[in-house]
Design a protein around this nucleic acid. Structure first.
Lengths: 356, 356
DNA sequence: TTGTAGGCGTTATCAA
DNA sequence: TTGATAACGCCTACAA
């Protein structure tokens, strides 16, 4: 606010005390270089035609006054922001973090800027829509919650691709990329039976979680087909502590299951610790498997069998969809299932126990 | 590209096939509402004077055509973007993730948009500066790498606050907020000695890491003051596997230390598993402590004593500095040490062993 | 409280 | 290849 800086001009600290020096504009560069403003603009536009001489003059002038081309007016002009939104949350789960990091790296390398928004489970993305729109994002990636139908129609209207992770929502516009949850459940069921279990429990996440329910469906179907069955399904938060508590219940003395499949690894790791607390030997008395293949699953204290959802493949697929929808090569509303793989470790096979 | 949509006008799919419908502008809203464009602008500007009648007309018209005010021209006009950069990386470490998430939530609640950039250890932030400048960010938070002196001078010139986490860099402009690394080292040293150790090892991170070296310095000083000593310092990556490997070395049969302090929790958890692999009993034969207090430290399989760097407090302090520098209440280049606390668990005290 | 008009820093069009 | 000039969509005096 204060303009008291003038009386101190010449001293070292001026920059700190002055009102913000504005960024130099292309006009100032042009003046200094003795060329037109358009010449400056062209110098910083890929593929524009500028002579080497002009380019050199501009570059030198720009360097002298510290010119940084602004992306803001360009957005107005081109109605393309190079800004891509990512709505993330639940970063306590390393899988979510890995997805976020992978998206960020790839988008950054592709020349986009990532606008990160935090969303909770309950809090729909809807209230963030005005912001997303205000910054004229070119696309949106969701790692959790779902937009309301109304909001996704809005994005559709402006042809802004929206790609969601692990959602079943039928939607004309929002595309989704999901690990093959049912397939993962089947893989685990097959493994359990193959290793000798006939009665298994499922430690689900929240009861309204689509992914968890899909995993259960595949698990149950395969078990029954193999002559085994589910003895128990319990629900809890998708976290270690919740898994620990839930497992303590499930593993109460009478009618204990021979195996537990957990909706995700965090729950499964809690279950492993619960079993140990009860003196139950893994995998001899109880097998446990999870889903996500987070780094902690391979830690030696756990050595957990799990399903790998192939996060890299998910991210790659999502970006492919993003680009295709952007280019109108395909319409929105695509749904792609990414194959999963089983990673067997010591929690289901004593043959795999510690050896390094 | 194609304008073939016209022949299908009236069908459902039009929006998908047309070229992107542009966002409606305030001018269109004004026309529809029968007011001036400024009236529309005022309606969406907090604290502007608009009559209820006008506001109502505008709001209705806006709703009808799906108007979303653009932030872009505002940025040009006010040279304030409400965009804040966060440079993050190493998200395999849950502490980094927690910081990122906390920053994001708080900035979002404060009305800012987060522009997320991924940086690696080696890759300096410098090459991202053109992008940061292009989007005219209002501030920058760093969780890792350091800007070059040249880049920070650029931010200083434009009075863009930069707040760094856990860095010692002397800098006129970049502020930093750090956990009290030396203090943490001292706390652990005191604990080790109190619990009976006289020979301790330090499992450092990378040898050029400031935080790790500070922790070592505090640890060493306190040990010596108490008549104990460091028998070994080894360096490794800040990760579980690296810690496991390094610990296997350190714990080779002869002259085994009685306690190991690790530069972070991931290393420490690897060390715990290494000790178990060697049949060493924790805490009886060996005490282990880490730094960061990541969630995994409290998992029952580990129950690791650690130093809590108070991430919430770090984030809060960083935001406070950000605002003050922005308001010119303080100059940049501040350095603040955030107190840490010791969290003792079973890895240093058998009295704390499993009881729930 | 309202409208008019100028400007923010680019890109895009068109002549030269 | 260059330079005028007109947008882009909003904010902000200023005048009414």
């Amino acid at each position: 606010m204060a303009k008291r800086a003038s009386k101190r001009s010449g001293t070292k600290k001026d920059a700190t005390l002055d009102q913000p020096r504005k960024y130099p504009s292309s006009i100032e560069v042009a003046r200094l270089a003795g060329v037109s403003q358009s010449a400056v603009s062209r110098t910083y536009t890929a593929g524009a035609s500028v002579s080497d001489a002009t380019r050199a003059k501009v570059t030198r002038a720009a360097a002298r006054i510290g010119y940084r081309p602004s992306a803001i007016p360009r957005i107005m002009q081109t109605s393309q922001s190079n800004l891509v939104g990512i709505a993330a949350g639940g970063l306590y789960n390393p899988l979510n973090t890995a997805l976020l990091e992978a998206y960020t790296i790839r988008l950054q390398n592709a020349g986009y800027q990532v606008l990160l928004f935090h969303v909770t489970d309950t809090n729909s993305l809807d209230e963030l829509v005005p912001r997303l729109a205000a910054y004229r994002i070119d696309g949106l990636f969701l790692t959790r919650t779902v937009l309301s139908r109304r909001s996704s129609e809005e994005f559709q209207k402006f042809h802004i691709p929206v790609i969601s992770f692990d959602t079943l929502d039928k939607n004309d516009w929002v595309s989704s990329v999901c690990p093959d949850d049912q397939g993962g459940g089947r893989l685990v069921a097959n493994l359990f039976v193959q290793r000798g279990a006939t009665k298994a429990a499922y430690l689900a996440g929240k009861s309204d979680n689509v992914a968890s329910n899909e995993r259960l469906e595949g698990f149950r179907a395969a078990l029954e087909q193999l002559g085994a069955k589910i003895t128990n399904v319990s629900y809890c938060a998708f976290q270690y502590e919740a898994g620990y508590r839930a497992a303590l219940e499930v593993l109460s003395p009478r009618s204990r299951p021979e195996a537990i499949f957990c909706a995700n690894d965090l729950i499964a790791l809690g279950a492993v610790d619960a079993a140990r607390r009860l003196g139950i030997s893994i995998p001899n008395d109880l097998m446990i498997a999870g889903f996500d293949n987070i780094p902690q699953s391979s830690w030696r204290a756990y050595d957990l069998t799990t399903v790998n959802p192939s996060p890299d493949s998910i991210v790659e697929t999502s970006l492919m969809i993003f680009k295709k929808v952007l280019d109108r090569a395909i319409p929105g509303g695509v749904r792609i299932l990414v194959p999963v793989t089983l990673i067997e470790r010591a929690s289901t096979s004593s043959a795999l126990a510690i050896n390094n």
